[in-house]
Deep mutational scan, measured.
Amino acid sequence: TFYNFIMGFQNDNTPFGILAEHVSEDKAFPRLEERHQVIRAYVMSNYTDHQLIETTNRAISLYMANL
């Protein structure tokens, strides 16, 4: 899942690491979701930090390219 992918960046001092920290603390994050459209919609609806949203979009693109 995307959640498992992004958790691989925990403790990294990178934008993906920052995203992983936010996702791990977000109890409502769709952890079992595999459809990138649902993940993107969730982030757009629940996150207000523009940098975090952009990082999510980049992470989703990388995740999709590696499926």
Rank of each mutant, 00 (worst) to 15 (best):
L62W: 07
L62T: 05
Y3A: 01
T48S: 11
A41Y: 09
R31P: 02
F2Q: 00
M64Y: 08
G8W: 07
G8V: 07
E54L: 10
R31S: 05
M7R: 05
V23H: 03
A41C: 11
E25W: 10
V23F: 12
L52C: 05
N46R: 07
P30R: 03
A20G: 02
E34T: 15
I53K: 07
R40E: 08
D12W: 08
H36N: 06
I6T: 00
T14R: 02
V38F: 09
F29R: 13
E21P: 03
G17F: 04
L67Q: 13
N46Q: 07
I6H: 01
S45Q: 14
V38Y: 10
D12E: 12
N46H: 12
R31T: 06
Y47T: 04
F5C: 02
T55I: 14
M64Q: 09
R58C: 10
Q10D: 05
F16Y: 08
L67V: 11
R31H: 07
A65G: 09
G17Y: 04
Y3N: 00
F5V: 00
N11W: 09
R58G: 05
S24F: 13
S61D: 15
V38G: 04
N13I: 07
E34A: 14
A59V: 07
L62H: 06
F5R: 00
R58W: 10
R31E: 03
F2W: 05
A41G: 06
Y3Q: 00
F2V: 03
H50Q: 14
M44C: 09
D49M: 06
Y3P: 00
A59L: 10
I6Q: 00
I60W: 06
I39Y: 02
D49V: 05
A28Y: 14
H50N: 12
S61M: 14
E25N: 15
V38I: 11
Q51D: 13
I18Y: 10
L52Q: 02
V23M: 10
Y42M: 03
T48K: 12
S24W: 09
P15I: 08
E25Q: 15
D12C: 14
S24Y: 13
T1E: 03
S45T: 12
S45W: 06
T55K: 02
F2H: 00
Q51H: 12
Y47H: 02
I60T: 02
Q37K: 08
S24P: 04
R31A: 05
E34K: 15
V38T: 07
H36L: 15
E54P: 03
V38R: 07
I6P: 00
V43S: 02
E25I: 11
E25G: 14
A65F: 10
S61P: 05
Y42I: 03
G17L: 04
R58T: 08
F5T: 00
L19H: 01
N57E: 15
L62Y: 07
I18G: 06
V38K: 08
Q10T: 09
A41N: 12
S61F: 12
M64F: 08
A41S: 09
D12Y: 10
E33V: 05
E21R: 15
H50D: 12
P30D: 04
T55G: 03
L67I: 12
T56Y: 13
Q10P: 04
Q51G: 11
A28R: 11
E25D: 09
